[in-house]
């Protein structure tokens, strides 16, 4: 049995070289499909990351009634922090608010002897999902001791819209790309194996079991799938780093607004996904195509 395993594995490897045209066509198809797939995944990852970064910068500011004690403020902060949609909640004292504001005023701030923002201690609330802003504001309006709530409805709504579009488009495109890839690759495998129908017939006439006939084809498919998916992953890795570097150095002004995901964080998902898809398509493609010809 071990002999048979190594024999069929060896035949699978030999088949890769014996059928050069089939190997080249399958490799080209798998590589091209997974290359496009990889580019799209990398773009989607970055767009999502950028949206997330912008989202985390959107805050709701809460001001308190004049007579509110620090103890109540701490209580409110505690209640807000516990809410699931809240990502961070910072307390800004009146002094901190004035220090921040006076930085902006520069020399003009020097004339003030007392803190003109004495009543402006506040809570800066950051959300992990801006679409929940309305929900949070609704809650804050019921909390006692709050004088004023500052929010940016337009930013929140725009971001929520962008996020929804990005999600739908990326899920749709990835599904479409995968479907096209599977279709193209299985077509190549089907044609490649159909040409070798005679070879399968001969093996069956001589008394080979289905396993014995199929195993080399399946190994061959998996090897081609593995190489075909490794090529675009390696190429994309270098391309991604080059693009990353290019954007950082040539569009430096964007760096304040946009941050890109480092290659390692994208490829930790993209590399295994591509390899699994490549090997999986190679396995199932050859498994089912050979099956059609086994009933001889």
């Amino acid at each position: 049995m071990i002999n048979t395993f190594f024999y069929t594995l060896g035949q699978g490897v030999k088949n890769v070289f014996r059928n050069k045209w089939f190997t080249m066509a399958s490799l080209a198809t798998i590589s091209a499909c997974l290359f496009v797939f990889g580019i799209f995944v990398a773009v989607v990852f970055n767009v999502n990351h950028i949206v997330k970064t912008v989202e985390e910068g959107v805050s709701v500011t809460v001001y308190f009634n004049e007579d509110v004690e620090q103890e109540r403020i701490d209580q409110i902060r505690e209640l807000v922090t516990r809410r699931p949609e809240v990502y961070r909640c910072d307390f800004i004292s009146a002094d901190e608010a004035w220090a921040e504001f006076s930085k902006k005023l520069g020399e003009n701030a020097e004339g003030f002897t007392e803190n003109p923002l004495a009543n402006s201690e506040n809570l800066q609330i950051y959300l992990n999902d801006v679409s929940k802003q309305g929900e949070l504001v609704g809650y804050l309006e019921t909390v006692e001791g709050i004088r004023k709530i500052n929010k940016s409805e337009l930013t929140a709504n725009t971001l929520t819209g962008v996020k929804a579009v990005v999600t739908y488009v990326s899920v749709g495109m990835i599904a479409l790309l995968l479907a096209v890839s599977i279709f193209l690759i299985s077509n190549t495998v089907t044609i490649g194996i159909s040409v070798r129908k005679e070879e399968i017939n001969i093996m069956k006439y001589v008394g080979a079991t289905d396993f014995f006939v199929r195993a080399p084809f399946v190994f061959e498919g998996m090897i081609i799938g593995l190489i075909g998916s490794a090529i675009p992953v390696v190429v994309l890795y270098y391309l991604y780093n080059a693009a990353f570097e290019f954007l950082r150095s040539n569009f430096a002004f964007l760096n304040d607004y946009i941050s890109y995901i480092p290659a390692s964080e994208v490829f930790i998902y993209l590399a295994p996904a591509s390899l699994i898809i490549g090997v999986g398509i190679g396995f199932f493609g050859s498994f089912f195509t050979v099956r059609k010809h086994l009933h001889v």
């Binding site: 014996r18 069956k204 006439y205 001589v206 008394g207 289905d210």
Partner: peptide, 30 residues
């Protein structure tokens, strides 16, 4: 069926040899 066919030897008009394998491997295959 596979096990049954091993009790038979078959020869065809068009030989039906595995074209990409040499004489030794064609016979060894059986």
């Amino acid at each position: 069926v596979a096990k049954f066919r091993r009790t038979l030897g078959v020869v065809f008009q068009d030989f039906r040899l595995l074209k990409d394998r040499n004489v030794y491997d064609n016979v060894a295959f059986a």
